[in-house]
Structures are given as structure tokens and as C-alpha cells.
Nucleic acid binder design. Structure first.
Lengths: 161, 161
DNA sequence: ACATATCCCGACAAAAACGATCAACTACTC
DNA sequence: GAGTAGTTGATCGTTTTTGTCGGGATATGT
């Protein structure tokens, strides 16, 4: 599980698409203009999204993209995986060349963390995003932790998230 | 909030450090050897970790790095933020140059998602990682979702997470 | 003095992010 | 039914990020 600006672009674009597909196929040019993402980059992203069966394309005038599934059956995790594919698979393929036991422990821990993150992102559907049904209770948890162990530097960085 | 291999390396190194600091300062050379990360890269990462007050250094023979705070007061989010700094701040600085209302909505949604992720990563402390107290209940949720909307392609990719 | 550390820097290759350009397809018009 | 404009689709080039290598400076315990 990797989370980069690429994934963010893809999610942003998919939200735009999802909230406009009622009027027929949505063009990449439109998404590019509204979301300020370069058309070329969108073309690449949607190529991947199409190959992962998240969107379907209609060519020619009046064409564009549609969601390939129901809006409630596409999650943020789907989009990010489609766009960020390779995902080095924790460079020690599950068992070998982990020299001592300690290294593998670290890997297990990270893999577990990965699963948790995936589970969360997979619980957020496009539908929930478009219709603003994403619970905003996170702020409270964050603030609680910040207050518990704030240092001059952390406070500054939190603002930049 | 960005999640790349760089952050993973930093977390791995911090776990190694945390689980060995009982015997005094831990050298980067040791971490490099055990975790198979290049020494130069570790130096760069720990420079940032030190400037963010997550670790403190002791120079000279017998020196190395220590955690600057209690092991339970350092979270995965702390480490990732320290190491992945710039974080473009969602390129429309919170208010301006969002041309139509729709764009800002998308940004809000993403920002909210970011907060949720941060909240989760901030809830996982180094202590919890080292002492294996990270709940593995995620698998169930993942499997539930996969079963709900599996396609030939997704199934293949899930295996690669 | 010497060996062992952190620190700081510049150069570099490989990979990923991002962008531009051109080819292929298709609905519409005439 | 041929042309044309609006699209997607694929390929290549440039810039940024990752990760490594090497060298040198500074601090410090023995």
C-alpha cells in the first residue's frame, strides 16, 4: 500500500467523474480543466483505471468515461491500487533472505500495518465521498494525541497536513 | 500524508533502534547491516529524525542514536512526517484559487481522508509495534469487502498487497 | 594518537512522476 | 460515404524523487 500524489490525483478525478456521470460520459478534458490536472497525466491514469475495470470508455464525439461499476462498489483502495500497481511486495518475498528473525518481525509488523490501512481505505466508497458521508470524527483523535505530546516542531507540521 | 518506501525504511529503522536501545546508543552501521539499508541513506533519514526531535545522537566511539522520547510517545505518523516533509499542502492553500465550489469540495474530502489516515497512523506507537500490540483484525474487514465485490482482476491484486 | 562515531556534502544511476506529441478510433454532418 | 472534429490510446522526453557511493570534517572514548 503506497500513498502518493498520484493516488490523490486519481481519487480526485474519480470523484469528479462520479459526480457528473449522470449527464452521460465525462471527458478527460473536462476533468483536467476543473481539477487542474494535466490532460496527458489523466490519460495515463484512466488507462490504468480502465484496465482495472473501474471505468469504461466511449470513444468519439460525445464520448468520455463512465464508472464501470456502481458508485457504491468502488472504494478508495480500488483506485489507489489500480494506479499505483507494482508495490514491491516487501522486497523479501514473504520468507527468504530475511537473515535473522528480527528482520522478519519488522516485515510482519509493516505488512500488518499495510493491511490495516488497506482495510480503512477499502471501507471508504466513492459514493460515501461524493455524498459526504465520510465521518469527520478523526479530528478529535488527532487533537487528543497532539495535546498529549506536543513539541514546538510538531505543532508547526500538523498545520501543513 | 504521504506513504512511500522512504517512510517504510524510516519506520523499520526506528523499530530496530527502539528494540535495541536498552544496551546503549545504537549505531547506524548496525541498523544498516541488520535491515539491509545503505548507511548513507540512514544518515539522511536520521538527520531528519534528529531535527524533528525523535532521536538524539551521541558522537564518538560507543556512540550512536537513542530515542529522544519515551517509546510510547513516538508514533508511526511522527516518523513519516519527519521523513517525508514538504507535502505540497494540497496546492490550493486552503481557500484561494479554487475556481468553482466543486473543486473545493473535492479538496475538503481529500483533506478529511488525510486526517483519518493520520489519526490511524498516529494511534500506532513504536511501543505497540515493537511489542506486537497492533490489532490484526484488519484481515476480516478486507475479506468481507473482497467477497462483496470481487472481480477477476482485483482478486489477483489483493494477493500482492 | 588513533579508532569509532556522527555529520555534511556533492555526484550519480535508477525509477517514478509528470507532461507533450502523435496515432487510432468513432459519431456526426454534408 | 467521405471528411472532420472530438475523443481515447500509446509512445517518448523531461523533471523530480529515491537510493547509493565516496570523501571529508568534527567530536570523543581509549
Amino acid at each position: 500500500m503506497r500513498l502518493t500524489t498520484k493516488g490523490r490525483f486519481a481519487v480526485t478525478a474519480m470523484i469528479d467523474l462520479a459526480s457528473r456521470q449522470a449527464d452521460g460520459p465525462v471527458t478527460l478534458a473536462g476533468i483536467a480543466e476543473r481539477q487542474k490536472i494535466s490532460l496527458s497525466y489523466l490519460e495515463q491514469l484512466f488507462g490504468k483505471l480502465r484496465r482495472h475495470d473501474l471505468v469504461s470508455s466511449v470513444r468519439g464525439p460525445g464520448g468520455g468515461y463512465r464508472l464501470a461499476r456502481d458508485i457504491a462498489a468502488i472504494t478508495v483502495a480500488d483506485i489507489i491500487i489500480a494506479v499505483d500497481e507494482p508495490l514491491d511486495a516487501t522486497q523479501c518475498g514473504g520468507k527468504e533472505n530475511c537473515h535473522d528473525a528480527h528482520r522478519c518481525m519488522t516485515h510482519d509488523l509493516w505488512a500488518n500495518l499495510n493491511k490495516r490501512m488497506y482495510a480503512y481505505l477499502d471501507s471508504v466508497t466513492l459514493d460515501a465521498l461524493v455524498n459526504r458521508r465520510v465521518q469527520p470524527d478523526a479530528d478529535m483523535a488527532v487533537l487528543r494525541n497532539i495535546r498529549r505530546r506536543a513539541t514546538p516542531s510538531t505543532v508547526r507540521e500538523i498545520a501543513a497536513i
